[in-house]
Amino acid sequence: MKSRLPINIINGAGMIIVVVLFLMPFVWMVSTSFKTLGETMTFPPVWFPDQFLWENFIKAWNSGPFLRYFFNSVVVTFGILVLQFCTIIPAAYAFARYTFKGDRFFFGLTMITLMIPPQLIFLPVYLQMSSWGLLDSLWALILPFASSAFGIFLLRQSFKQVPEELLEAARLDEASEGKIILKIMIPMAKPVLITFALFSFITHWNDYFWPLVMTTSDSARTLPLGISKLREVEGGVAWNILMAGNMILVIPILIVFFFAQRQIIRAFVYTGVK
């Protein structure tokens, strides 16, 4: 026992260092967001502001049409989520439970899509959207993500695990395919659906790239884009206002992360394991 003690101290100290390295920047963000402009310009830095300046948040919020950005973010995120559920559940069911001509081809198509990042195709998609007159609208932000290859892949796995006898019994009772999906498949795959929903919500809530490319006016801009424009609104860089603005973006995610840490980690880790 005695000989193990120093190792435990090293272990504990190491873990504290790791936690500090990863959480300190966020602490700094919170602390800065409550400071006066003067307090951000001292060296050595002040760790805690004299008083908490809540008005930084109001200033950040009022420096642009943030209600509009927030509304757009909510519409885009939930619009994508609803459409994805409508498309991936039937597709995953077909891939998991049916053999049909070309099924391997179509699943291959899905897997290729899984590997195509938005950064690769934004230019041609932009040109397409422009020719359809959809640029600078929420449609341009929602439609390309109306289905998800990752979602189909994930859900197919869990649909495959539903025992065949259950489906046969349901079919003997003359249950329609729609009823089988609603009453058997979806309840059985509920954890996976929640996992996927969290993944999709976080990904699209945070997304900066796609709205940046597809929108040109405030009417279709989302929160991350609005926050990134804060810098241009203020003359010099007011880090306290900037950090307050970013808190607005980060807090919803942190709340979700706090309540569903396990599921979220599982969802993202799964993208790396498959």
Partner: peptide, 29 residues
């Protein structure tokens, strides 16, 4: 016979329209 195709069609349209076709279009451009 058509059932599974109907089930995958919405997703396949999205993938072809916004992922597969743009790649071809980009090579063309």
């Amino acid at each position: 016979k058509a059932f599974p195709y109907a089930m995958i069609t919405p997703s396949m349209i999205v993938f072809c329209l916004f992922f597969i076709y743009p790649i071809g279009y980009m090579i063309y451009l």
